[in-house]
Write a protein that binds this DNA or RNA. Structure first.
Length: 433
RNA sequence: UCCCCGAUAGCUCAGCUGGCAGAGCAACGGACUGUUAAUCCGUGGGUCGCUGGUUCGAUCCCAGCUCGGGGAGCCA
């Protein structure tokens, strides 16, 4: 009788006595009956207290119990067609461990700012709990994918001496007598070093960008997974990204299909259409297509949010745009030998208007060319000497990409904003809770 | 950094031409044996974001500031 049962497993307990430990999600009352909605982190179940079936103190405690009080409920599991999960608990005893009136989040609509203030409590709602679970599944699918294909997880440092790409603004940290350190904006350069050691490597960790971006797609702290593979070219890189994304989506749909539909109202059929092959178009073809829709854009312009939307709305699966103008890309991209104006880079744009979730490509593997690029971008040569070494001692063609975890969660869950995809989002105007 | 919008009860909001601060929900007290954001009766609850200006009088008009939301650029 003291065996705790989780709501997720309740069907196996049909007709038996069970002890639930959880929190009071909601409550309705009809005098001599109390209906308690109890959640335990694995699900939500209605617990029915009939005055004649429980001790007087238990009935009174249920009457007084405030929202989100921690509770212990004993009772008999019973099938009920009125229950969304098919079962409810006919309570024989009930007690409150702790609770206080005034729980801030009510079962009604709230403003975004308020909910973010209450993020530590907001996580308890069924919608947020599901998003956390999907995020977990995505991260697990990412790791399973690489772990089962001979990749080695290599952790890149978070404190770094200089910019990886030189364009983004970095967070500065004082660093003893060495002056300043910076929070990493990408583990890729270290991933390249690792790939020369283990062949297939992936870096998985947090990333920091001090850019003053205020949009639904930006956080100042986010998670990125960055595979890097020796002896891989751009085509192989696109094959890898495509196979990888298909597998992540498949894994999430396999484990969360019903909840995605019922709690997030996600169009799961759209996710099921994510299969190989993804369309692959060059940047030049993309520009031509956008021009045909009457949008003023010329070769050399960046694809902004509007342009990305125009492009990915014509496909029912992610689209790969490759061979961008070299001018637009970071110094480490290899140029296309057939057309040095373009870099061997690829972006993967998620469908349904979610935009870029992957950026990557083939790296420059020639010492002299890379050195010239570093100088051209006015980057400190001494800080990149170790990176140049990789082109000096056994250089090979290699490629990789970075996938943004939060944008992937937003896309798969069908969320409007990435701030809901991470437990405690860090944004330009928000550092708490 | 730039552009747009907003700030009134715990929450979501209304507040007319500048003239006593409002509703719904929540909380609290009560009624109710099948409720699904239950219903019904009752009670309490305000530095109208901050600072200044105009005015007999400012939640309302004006300026600056702070905070929040949306977007751009940049990116994942």
């Amino acid at each position: 009788m003291d065996r705790q049962v989780y709501i997720r497993d309740i069907a196996a307990e049909d007709g038996r006595e069970a002890l639930l430990r959880g929190w009071l999600y909601g409550k309705r009352s009809s005098g001599k009956l109390h209906f308690l909605q109890v959640r335990d982190g694995t699900g939500l179940i209605q617990c029915v207290l009939s005055k004649k079936d429980v001790p007087e103190a238990a009935f009174a405690a249920a009457d007084k119990a405030p929202q989100e009080a921690s509770v212990e409920v004993r009772g008999k599991v019973a099938k009920d067609p009125r229950s969304p999960i098919g079962y409810e608990l006919h309570v024989t005893d009930f007690r409150v461990l702790q609770g206080e009136a005034g729980y801030p989040i009510q079962p009604k609509e709230h403003g975004v700012g308020f909910l973010q203030e209450q993020r530590h409590l907001w996580l308890r709602s069924s919608r947020q709990r599901l998003i956390l679970a999907v995020r977990h599944s995505i991260i697990k699918a990412i790791r399973d994918y690489f772990d089962s294909r001979g990749f080695t997880l290599v952790d890149a440092p978070i404190l770094t001496p200089a910019a990886c790409e030189g364009t983004s603004t970095l967070f500065e940290v004082p660093y003893f007598d060495l002056g300043k350190a910076f929070l990493t904006q990408s583990g890729q350069l270290y991933g390249e070093a690792a790939a020369m050691a283990v062949g297939k490597a992936y870096v998985f960790g947090p990333t920091f960008r001090a850019e003053k971006s205020k949009t639904r797609r930006h956080l100042t702290e986010f998670w990125m997974v960055e595979p890097e593979v020796a002896y891989l070219d751009l085509d192989g890189d696109m094959d890898l990204a495509e196979d990888f994304i298909v597998e992540i989506v498949r894994a999430v749909v396999a484990s969360h299909e019903q909840e995605l539909k019922s709690i997030l109202e996600r169009d799961v059929e759209a996710l099921k259409r994510v299969c190989k092959p993804f369309p692959r178009i060059t940047y030049t073809e993309a520009i031509e297509y956008i021009q045909k829709t009457g949008h003023p854009i010329k070769w050399g312009d960046d694809l902004g949010g509007d342009e990305e939307t125009i492009l990915c709305k014509q496909f029912d699966r992610p689209v790969m745009v490759h061979r961008y103008p070299a001018e637009m890309k970071a110094f480490y991209f290899k140029k296309d030998p057939k057309d040095p104006k373009v870099a061997l880079g690829v972006d993967v744009l998620a469908p349904e208007g979610y935009g870029e979730i992957v950026g990557g490509g083939q790296r420059e593997d020639d010492y002299a060319t890379l050195k010239a690029e570093i100088e051209k971008h006015n980057l400190p040569l001494d800080a990149f000497q170790w990176y140049l070494d990789l082109r000096k001692y056994g250089s090979v063609p290699h490629a990789g990409f970075g996938l943004g975890v939060e944008r992937t969660v937003a896309w798969i869950c069908g969320l409007h904003h990435v701030r809901e995809t991470i437990p405690f989002p860090r944004m330009m105007e928000r550092l708490t809770p």
